[in-house]
């Protein structure tokens, strides 16, 4: 029974192959027969196991699925003719009859339409400027690009990391176009992928000497912070209402508080009034150094290189490191005892 089924299907397949329209093909005619032969021999020789064969044969014959049938295009269409504007209800209805719902983007079925459109857009832009001269990566304008998380939030789409970086690779290549030849529309297109705030954006407001001739400077060190007002004068110095020698016991601290003035030989040209709080005396003295230097820079901006050489411009960011659990101090571990 099973054998009969199998051979019948094979014969029908062979019939189908033979009847297929192949005018010039002579060589392939041999092929189906060749593939037929061993199958036939197999059927004739092997002992049949009916259960297996019956279960297998229909499976092999069945397709995993059947594609949709071909479309039959009707001769008449579902369209209606516009009979000109009659009354308004009718025109309302006619407007409704012309409406259809379509995706807003060509990338609708990718489920990430905004991202896919962006990708296509930047690759088209790159193709348009691919032949322009470029600059080195090190010389390119510094840009803070959006991170993938920011981009995902912007588009509200589950963008894959790899795809995003592939797109950003193109955008970064756009950034390498020589600045003097960079077209304006590419600059605006790149803005979409930049962070809102860029590295050079935050410029501190320039400090000015006020109406009474004071320049203000703020400095910090360790946990102390100091505010200093600097006025042109004879070299008087007051810190929290006391003179330097009253306020600082150590000579070194007195010197470092006015080090900015001393290093530039301005000690007898400015009067200084400082308020300092927090921390110990070293911290307070060095917070004053920074504050005085900043105030001095307001009076004489040209002193900046000299002050930098004197080490008065940079804020020292070191602070006491916190103690951690399991440690004796910040990093010290308890002595290890064997058992």
């Amino acid at each position: 029974m099973a054998r009969g089924e199998l051979s019948r299907t094979l014969w029908s397949a062979a019939e189908g192959l033979r009847s297929a329209p192949r005018s010039q093909c002579t060589r392939t005619m041999r092929l189906p027969y060749r593939s037929l032969q061993p199958a036939a021999r197999f059927i004739s020789t092997t002992p049949s196991r009916s259960a297996e064969l019956t279960s297998e044969t229909p499976e092999a014959q069945l397709e995993p699925f059947t594609a949709a049938p071909e479309i039959e295009f009707e001769a008449d269409e579902g369209g209606d003719k516009d009979s000109g504007g009659g009354n308004n209800q009718k025109s309302n209805n006619q407007l409704l009859r012309t409406l259809r719902v379509v995706p807003a983007s060509r990338s609708y079925f990718s489920a990430k339409p905004t991202f896919t459109d962006d990708y296509l857009h930047v690759s088209a832009l790159l193709r348009s400027v691919a032949t322009l001269p470029t600059i080195l990566t090190t010389e390119a304008p510094r840009v803070a690009w959006k991170t993938i998380d920011q981009y995902r939030i912007m588009t509200n789409e589950p963008v894959k990391t790899q795809r995003f970086h592939r797109m950003m690779h193109i955008v970064k290549r756009l950034n390498l176009v020589h600045p003097s030849l960079m077209p304006e529309h590419i600059k605006t297109a790149m803005r979409r992928f930049m962070k809102d705030s860029q590295p050079g954006d935050l410029v501190p407001a320039p400090q000015l000497v006020d109406d009474w001739g004071r320049a203000r400077g703020v400095g910090r060190r360790k946990t102390s912070s100091a505010v200093v007002w600097l006025v042109e004068g004879e070299g008087e110095a007051l810190v929290n209402g006391k003179s330097l020698s009253q306020f600082f016991g150590r000579l070194h601290h007195r010197e470092s508080a006015v080090w900015a003035l001393k290093a530039t030989h301005r000690l007898d040209k400015y009067n200084m009034f400082g308020l300092v709080q927090g921390g110990g005396s070293t911290g307070q003295a060095e917070a004053l150094t920074l504050a005085v230097a900043k105030a001095l820079l307001v009076h004489e901006p040209a002193l900046k290189p000299a002050l930098r050489r004197a080490g008065c411009v940079t804020r020292d960011p070191r602070k006491v490191e916190r103690k951690k659990t399991g440690h004796v101090k910040a990093r010290k571990m308890p002595t290890w005892v064997k058992r």
């Binding site: 259809r100 379509v102 807003a104 983007s105 489920a111």
Partner: peptide
Amino acid sequence: QILSKCRTKVVNG
């Protein structure tokens, strides 16, 4: 589940 976030629009003829 997959395409509901993607925007659609209504167009005329």
